[in-house]
Design a protein around this nucleic acid. Structure first.
Lengths: 344, 344
DNA sequence: ATGAAAGCGCTAACAC
DNA sequence: GTGTTAGCGCTTTCAT
């Protein structure tokens, strides 16, 4: 028995009275092995509590059975839910998921990618990041690293998944327009990149279809510090004539918006309508409950895993695939016809 | 250059005109190497974009530089925050964090532990799990696997961390007692194990210090399905004389409790006081904001990482350490003196 | 100071 | 069907 109490295949082979090679074949049921030896080896392994060393296997087989995933912030419930689902699906197929936080920093993202490559992950799922470096993804694929993109731009020839953010924002805006709103404020995280850019586009499209102007001054896009959002909400509230509805894009946005409105004494939905994109506990349980355009986090995670597994098993036929996750509007009563004009 | 475009140390050695062994020593600055060769090798490595293969290193050095962590549910914001902080601290020291979800299932937990062992993680951080198997932890340590426990029972001789759940519940209960409440309902996830058991103990202690009876019928302990919590809240509301205050232990509990109260038309805090253990967006932004006893997730994560790093670096002096994370009460106005008796 | 060689634990190619 | 051997990429003796 080898040092450290850990049994190796050598111990198993010895215990079963066969050679190392035979033991390996028996355990993996590969090649030609007699049923009797399979039985002897298996039982010896069982008895010794043998567990193959995944590191040695990885070195030999050139596959770690680990998939890496990068998100901006693991503690954002939207990512946490997706990761959870992806991990589960991957685990079913024997893969582990290694997660890294980029903190929305391009340098950190690159560091993590290098780290994951050093660790020889079999594939990489890349979530959205503040800045993008499209060339980098091509480089990875060129270096034989399968990449699946998630809410992030990517070239033809690659696989990836997008939530239908454009449609989500479009539907949200239309919902408010249909109620008669004409000045709809928007709070978003970043408008330069997917998914923020998509959302603005949807918002804009809905307005333009009604012949309403797209007003920059009704839009605020920032990092999602809660205090910051609140002050942006204040600033929007001071516009005259005042906006009659607020759309918040993203969890953190909603919290700041609601707090801002509450502190100013604006009631929802009597004084102002509120709609959020992305559902949360807060939206569900606020009084009144906040209407939302949302989507299924589980589905996102499972589909990401599925895309990756497909890339990892070339025989499945690996032409690139793009998945679009649909969104749906849940009406909860935080939106009403525009009421009395505020501060006017 | 070896296959797949990946440079190995062999390529570097060749490019620098030295042997493989020398290249290794130069890159790691270990043993006797001349400064000039160090320079030659380093620049060759740089030029080729060489990255050492972590798998091969692991096999040789018997250390993967990976720490495993098990929690019941990654998408629970409490765990997500802790993981995030732990990951960051570990990464500073060159370790990666591999996370697994147990789904509160003992079997799954054991499977994951086996999986992590096969992958040769250098250490294991074990979060709370519905059922416990204290022997298992001893087995792991006996098999040379460093374990750090988190809100979970563990024997002398091991290191671990606990949030001061008992004190948290004690403080919460005292706060309500001081306001004049005598019938305080409690909604918890599980009362059999840490941390649920600790919390009940704190609640009980506070009551007994006031000479008030500990009433089983005011306590509900269950898995945290939202619908279930709501129905438990209903049941508590129908007791006569009715409870005048509710303590919810855990995030999910609060959501169900608030919904139950709202559906029944009980106003907070006029009709009933509410206090939650563990702060969340929902508690902060509900109207009225919900008072809470909370603690610092960052600190939990960092301390867990610190404990693990200490165990992993024996020279630091590795006598077992126990860390207790303090809690603090944040009063937000969801608690008031008991009002009119409801339904009585 | 450097090169040659052994070996971490495993699988696959090749003999028999 | 089974044993022997090479080798994955790296670090670390041990000679020189």
């Amino acid at each position: 028995m080898s040092k450290g109490g850990r049994k190796t295949i050598k111990d198993v082979a010895a215990a079963a009275g066969v050679s190392i090679g035979t033991a390996s074949r028996a355990l993996n049921r590969r090649g030609r092995v007699s049923e009797t030896t399979v039985a002897r080896v298996t039982s010896a392994a069982q008895r010794l509590g043998y567990q193959p060393d995944a590191i040695a296997q990885s070195l030999r087989l050139k596959s770690t059975m680990v998939v890496g995933m990068l998100v901006t912030d693991l503690s954002n419930p939207f990512f946490a839910g997706v990761i959870r689902a992806a991990e589960r699906r991957l685990q079913e197929s024997g893969y582990a998921l290694l997660v890294g936080n980029t903190d929305n920093d391009l340098t950190r993202e690159q560091q993590l990618i290098d780290l994951f490559r050093r660790r020889r992950v079999d594939g990489l799922i890349l979530g959205p990041c503040e800045a993008e470096n499209t060339g980098m993804i091509g480089d990875l694929e060129a270096a034989d690293m399968p990449v699946i993109c998630y809410d992030r731009d990517f070239d033809e020839g690659l696989s990836g998944l997008h939530v239908a953010h454009r449609k989500a924002a479009y539907d949200a805006t239309r919902h408010l327009l249909n109620l008669g709103h004409e000045r709809i404020a928007l709070l978003s995280s970043s408008i330069k990149l997917s998914p923020g850019r998509e959302r603005i586009a949807g918002y804009r499209q809905a307005l333009e279809e009604r012949g309403l102007p797209f007003r920059e001054d009704l839009i605020r896009a920032h990092q999602s510090s809660m205090e910051f959002v609140k002050s942006e909400a204040y600033s929007l509230m001071s516009i005259r004539p005042a906006p009659t509805a607020f759309i918040s894009l993203g969890t953190r946005m909603l919290a700041g918006t609601l707090e801002g409105l509450r502190d100013n004494g604006w009631r929802v939905p009597e004084d102002v309508s509120v709609l959020t994109v992305g559902d949360t506990d807060l939206a569900r349980l606020y009084v009144p409950a906040i209407s939302t355009v949302t989507w299924d986090l589980n589905s996102v995670g499972e589909n990401l895993a599925e895309l990756m597994l497909r890339r990892l098993a070339p025989e499945t036929g690996s032409e690139p695939r793009r998945i679009m996750i649909p969104t749906k509007l849940i009406d909860r009563g935080s939106c009403a016809r525009p009421g009395r004009l505020i501060g006017d």
